[in-house]
């Protein structure tokens, strides 16, 4: 479950980037060679956002062919 550790870091990174804004979508690029499972990332994301500024946000995973594991962008209001 290293996906959980990745999502914990992601939540604190995003919270630091967006300030007061409300986060609706977090978009990741996850490569098929990246050693992280999109399903496990989604599950861990739900666990990690609970009780944070990101609660209610959707995780949008764009699957790619390479080994990318990147936070691309967030949609906020």
């Amino acid at each position: 479950m290293h996906e959980l550790a990745l999502m914990e870091d992601l939540v604190s990174t995003v919270a630091g980037e967006v300030g007061e804004a409300r986060v609706h979508v977090v978009r990741l690029e996850v490569g098929r060679q990246a050693c992280a499972s999109p399903d496990a990332l989604r599950f861990s994301f739900e666990v990690c956002v609970h009780g944070t500024a990101l609660e209610g946000a959707t995780l949008d995973i764009v699957e790619t062919r390479g080994a990318e594991l990147r936070l691309k962008e967030v949609e906020v209001t």
């Binding site: 804004a21 609706h24 594991l69 936070l71 691309k72 962008e73 967030v74 949609e75 906020v76 209001t77």
Partner: peptide, 13 residues
């Protein structure tokens, strides 16, 4: 409120 997109581009690791 209008939805804004913030590009972050950061490796998860």
């Amino acid at each position: 409120p209008a939805v804004r997109t913030l590009r972050i581009e950061r490796d998860l690791l």
